[in-house]
């Protein structure tokens, strides 16, 4: 695979997480997972008001780390 194709695979998998943790857990399946609780929070509520934001940060830094590795391989 070329560098660009590897990048596209990486992007799609990270965007899947982006979608899953915000639109998925926070909105679409929020009802179904509401029986799970962390402290006083129902899981779906926590994802929509806190968790999604933390996941977004993790996604950006993971992409940044992984793509830099790919870029360095590409340059060598």
């Amino acid at each position: 695979m070329s560098f660009w194709q590897k990048n596209l695979v990486l992007l799609s998998s990270l965007l899947f997480f982006w979608f899953f943790c915000s639109f998925g857990l926070g909105i679409l399946f929020s009802e179904q997972i509401s029986f799970i609780k962390i402290g006083g929070f129902e899981l779906g509520f926590w994802f929509s008001q806190q968790g999604s934001i933390y996941t977004f940060i993790i996604i950006i830094f993971s992409y940044s780390f992984l793509i830099e590795k790919l870029e360095n391989e590409e340059k060598d």
Partner: peptide
């Protein structure tokens, strides 16, 4: 979610 999730799209 809306005003933070955009940064993922921006960065990626």
């Amino acid at each position: 979610m809306g005003w933070t999730g955009g940064y993922v799209l921006l960065a990626l």
